[in-house]
C-alpha cells in the first residue's frame, strides 16, 4: 500500500499544526516522522488514520482518495502512545475486538477468531497473558498487546504514535529491535512518530524530519545525519556546535575574527555555522580555524567532552577521542573536519 499526502493544511485556531505537507510513502516502507513536540507529526499521523481531518489537502492510499472514508473504513492499524487498551476486557478480548465487530456477513466464526488471536499473541510473544487485564501488564507488554490488536484486522497500513515514548530506556531499546524484525516479517507499510532521533535513525528505512508543521527533510537515516538539508535538521539531529557567523567578501567572520574557512559559493550576510561535536579536531594553538581555552573536561567512555571558550567569546562543547588528554586551562587550536553553513539567523 502506498500513501500519498498532498499539500495538507490543518489549523487549531490560529496555530498551524500542518502547514502544507507533501509526502509519499512506498509500499512496505518503515517510515519515521521525527520532530520536536508541536511539529505536527502526530497530527499528520492522525489525519492519515482518519482520526482527524485536514482543513485542506489530499490523502490517498494506492491512488484512492482516503479522505472520502472514515477511520472505520480505512483499515488502518493505529497504535496509541498510551496504548488505549480496553481496560474492562482481557488481553484476549482486546486483540479479538477488531474481529468481533466486523459486519455479520464477513465475520469469522468463533473458532477462527480464537485461532487468529492465539496466532497474534504468539507473534508478540505474549500468549501466556491472554487472560490478564491491561492493568496487570507492564508498559512494554501493553505496547505489544496494542500492536497485536492493531494487526488483528490485517491493516493495510500500520501507524504508531510515539510507540515507545512511555517506556523506560532499556525496554525501549529491546522493543525497537523487535519492531524492526516484526516489520520485516509482516512487511506492511508502516509509519511511526517519534521525537527520539536515535529511535528514528535506528528503526526506520526513511526518516521525515518535521518542524513547525512543515517537512524539513526526507531521506535515509544516513542522509539526514550526514547531509542535513536545513539548519533545523542539523541542529536537531546529532549533537552539533552552532555558531552565528557573518559572510562577507569571501570571508567568514565569527564576531570580529575572520575564520580560516573557505567561503566559496556562500551568500553574503548573517549565517549559521554547524559542526558536529566529534568533527572538531584538536591541535596545538594557532593550528586550526578556531582557538580557545579548555574550561573543563568530562570523560564518557571512549570520548572526552570538553567545554572550550573560543577566543571570540562563545563557549562550545566538543567530543575529542581519548589519548591526547585535554586539561582545563589548555589553549588549543580547533579545526572542523567537516562543517556546514546555512544562510539566515
Amino acid at each position: 500500500m502506498t500513501i500519498e499526502v498532498k499539500n495538507l493544511v490543518k489549523k487549531f485556531g490560529s496555530f498551524a499544526a500542518l502547514d502544507g505537507v507533501d509526502l509519499k510513502v512506498d509500499n512496505g516502507e518503515l517510515l519515521a516522522l521525527l520532530g520536536p513536540s508541536g511539529s505536527g507529526k502526530t497530527t499528520l499521523l492522525r489525519i492519515i488514520a482518519g482520526l482527524d481531518w485536514p482543513d485542506s489537502g489530499e490523502v490517498s492510499f494506492n491512488g484512492e482518495d482516503a479522505l472520502a472514508q472514515g477511520a472505520r473504513e480505512r483499515h488502518v492499524g493505529f497504535v496509541f502512545q498510551h496504548y488505549a487498551l480496553f481496560r474492562h476486557m482481557t488481553v484476549f478480548e482486546n486483540v479479538a475486538f477488531g474481529l468481533r465487530v466486523q459486519p455479520r456477513a464477513v465475520r469469522k466464526d468463533e473458532a477462527t477468531i480464537r485461532a487468529r488471536v492465539k496466532e497474534l499473541l504468539d507473534l508478540v510473544q505474549l500468549d501466556w497473558l491472554a487472560d490478564r487485564y491491561p492493568s496487570q501488564l507492564s508498559g512494554g507488554q501493553r505496547q505489544r498487546i496494542a500492536l497485536a490488536r492493531a494487526l488483528a484486522i490485517e491493516p493495510r497500513i500500520l501507524l504508531l504514535d510515539e510507540p515507545f515514548g512511555a517506556l523506560d530506556a532499556k525496554v525501549r531499546k529491546e522493543l525497537r529491535k523487535w519492531l524492526r524484525s516484526l516489520h520485516h516479517e509482516i512487511n506492511v507499510t508502516s509509519i511511526f512518530v517519534t521525537h527520539d532521533q536515535e529511535e528514528a535513525l535506528e528503526v526506520a528505512n526513511r526518516v521525515v524530519v518535521m518542524d513547525k508543521g512543515r517537512i524539513e527533510q526526507i531521506g535515509s537515516p544516513d542522509d539526514v545525519y550526514e547531509t542535513p538539508a536545513t539548519a533545523f535538521v542539523h541542529g536537531f539531529i546529532g549533537e552539533s556546535i552552532e555558531l552565528p557567523v557573518q559572510v562577507e567578501g569571501g570571508v567568514i567572520r565569527l564576531g570580529d575574527h575572520p575564520l580560516r574557512l573557505a567561503a566559496d559559493g556562500l551568500a553574503p550576510g548573517a549565517s549559521k555555522l554547524f559542526v558536529r561535536r566529534h568533527d572538531m579536531l584538536v591541535g596545538p594553538p594557532g593550528s586550526g580555524a578556531f582557538e580557545g581555552a579548555v574550561q573543563h573536561v568530562r570523560n564518557f567512555g571512549p570520548v572526552q567532552r570538553a567545554e572550550v571558550a573560543l577566543s571570540g567569546g562563545q563557549t562550545i562543547e566538543i567530543d575529542a577521542p581519548r589519548g591526547r588528554e585535554l586539561r582545563a586551562g589548555d589553549t588549543i587550536g580547533l579545526e572542523p573536519r567537516r562543517y556546514r553553513i546555512f544562510a539566515g539567523t
Binding site: 482520526l51 477511520a71 472505520r72 493505529f78 475486538f97 465487530v101 492493531a150 484486522i153
Partner: peptide, 16 residues
C-alpha cells in the same frame, strides 16, 4: 476518547 478512537480504527461502528 482514546479507547473510542481505538475502537473506531479497529472497525467498530458508533453503536458498537
Amino acid at each position: 476518547t482514546q479507547e473510542e478512537e481505538a475502537a473506531v480504527s479497529l472497525g467498530a461502528s458508533g453503536l458498537q
